[in-house]
Amino acid sequence: MDHIITLSDLRKKYNDQYVLKGIDLSFSQGQVVGYIGPNGAGKSTTIKIITGIIPDYEGEVKVFGLSVATHALEIKERIGYIPELAALYDVLTPLEYLSFIGRLYKLGDDVIERKSMDLLGLFDLADKAGMRMNSFSKGMKQKVLLISGLIHNPEIIFLDEPLSGLDANAVILVKELLAQLKNAGKTIFYSSHIMDVVEKISDRIIIINKGEVIADGTFTELKEKASLGSLESVFTELTGNNEHYALAGTFIDIMKN
């Protein structure tokens, strides 16, 4: 039993409509998994179920061999989750916020402070450690969020659109960070619709659309399947959106009339 995460026949219903229609996946330790799909495909929902944020679902989800339904707390202690929106308490300073999060993981005050300051320094935020975050840009908040998801040295890291709102330099830093985390043996589960990031660092790419997995494999495998150049076109072909050209033409026609 060396699978660190297993999903079997995972289903989730919102308002009597299934947004996840039976997902079967398993991941081994140390994998970097790109979880790709258009908006509304069910990416965030999947991540929220695995991380124990959404408690009601159908099917079975196991992390570290433990069921999420019964052992959410133990699992949460060993994973890190970084959401897409810059959702944090922005009336606090980064230091206060990280100390708040750190204490929820029951880390010692001195550990939290040392780690926070060092990590903030890496992200060029050391001089802003004592400033309230409501004046921060989205990118700065996202950096604090990244740190808050990693401060307790988690074994699996879930990232939900981690690059949204980051400036170009931070994007490069995050990509490098992910590569290094991978080298350190961490498992990374990563959702995105941005192609170029995923294709470079992912061991495995899963494409999901309308609550179903429609492709699963390495980038090269997927590429061979589609016999097309970049992942973006793989993606568009697999999700059936290659009538863009026709759409644009119709658009022009309607505009003229």
Binding site: I53, E77, P83, A87, Y89, L104, Y105
Partner: peptide
């Protein structure tokens, strides 16, 4: 609802 995003992913029971 910010609590859901910020605190629920942490090891805190509902």
């Amino acid at each position: 609802t910010a609590d859901n995003q910020i605190i629920l992913p942490r090891p805190v029971t509902s």
